[in-house]
Nucleic acid binder design. Structure first.
Lengths: 147, 147
DNA sequence: TCTTGACCTAGAGTAGGCTCTAGCATGTCT
DNA sequence: AGACATGCTAGAGCCTACTCTAGGTCAAGA
């Protein structure tokens, strides 16, 4: 099972470019990368798994630095499990805040769409939206740029 | 009501910096900015409202370019309401995808936390996570960097 | 009048996250 | 053996979205 995967193959399997994978490694996001006789990087299935997990973290707005720290903890073995759990729980809380924020935005957009519908119906601009409740402050976190 | 608001005040009211407001204007995100006798920018309440709305769009991952396009349509009056509605509906659909993605991530993180809990309990590493269902592909959109 | 603070423009600099180039080595196929 | 794909390193370049600097103008209070 422990196939010896070269970088091009890992790129296909993980959906990132060869360049990006090398860059991730340089940033400390990819642990235990082996080399073959010719100096080429050799990966195993665990790396595919790890990259898939990082992809979720990244898409949900975790910074490269935080992913590095998480990966570095993994490298230190079971003793760091509590820290890793804590970081994941922190990220989990952020995601919950992000979801709440996005749901607030959905409501606002719906209010704006109503506003436009009224404008079209009455043929005159309705009173300002800000008078509405849901708007208020757009405080709190925000997710990150999808690919 | 139409108070004459100067840029420093708008910065306070909108939560962005004076620099950023001027930059937004240069990017076409702020329509109809007046000037007083001394050449200083003069805003009205509608601008505060507009910036608050942009803030929601921005925090939910809309690009400056898309906000510019939306703002530009507004400048052309009621005739562009259908286009503006369409853009908002597009953004709304993106938000729904983002929410679904974040919820998938929550499940994955929970699975990973279970994995760690088992590891701690059994004192040995459980079999790989990827065997689990929920994981699969992290395809689809992703929100953007909160402030 | 003098000083201080808020503004102005143009343009440079920054941070994060890639993305690509150049020049060279290695491996495989015919 | 030669051609071509794939890999390597070091480092430059790019895009987005700001953020800040430099050098000057304007207005109101002491």
């Amino acid at each position: 099972m422990t196939r010896r995967i070269h970088i091009g193959r890992l790129a296909q399997l993980s959906g990132r470019s060869v360049h990006t994978i090398r860059w991730y490694e340089a940033r400390g996001l990819i642990p235990n990368v082996g080399r073959d006789a010719g100096g080429r990087r050799v990966y195993v299935d665990g790396h595919v798994e790890h990259l898939a997990f990082l992809e979720w973290l990244r898409r949900t707005g975790m910074s490269v630095e935080d992913m590095r720290a998480f990966t570095a903890l993994g490298l230190q073995g079971w003793r760091t499990i509590p820290q890793r759990e804590e970081r994941l729980r922190d990220h989990r809380r952020k995601l919950e805040r992000d979801i709440a924020m996005l749901q607030g935005a959905l409501q606002l957009i719906d209010a704006k769409l109503d506003y436009f519908a009224q404008w079209r119906a009455r043929k005159k601009r309705p009173p300002a939206l800000l008078a509405m409740p849901a708007l208020a402050e757009p405080r709190e976190a925000g997710p990150t740029p999808g690919s």
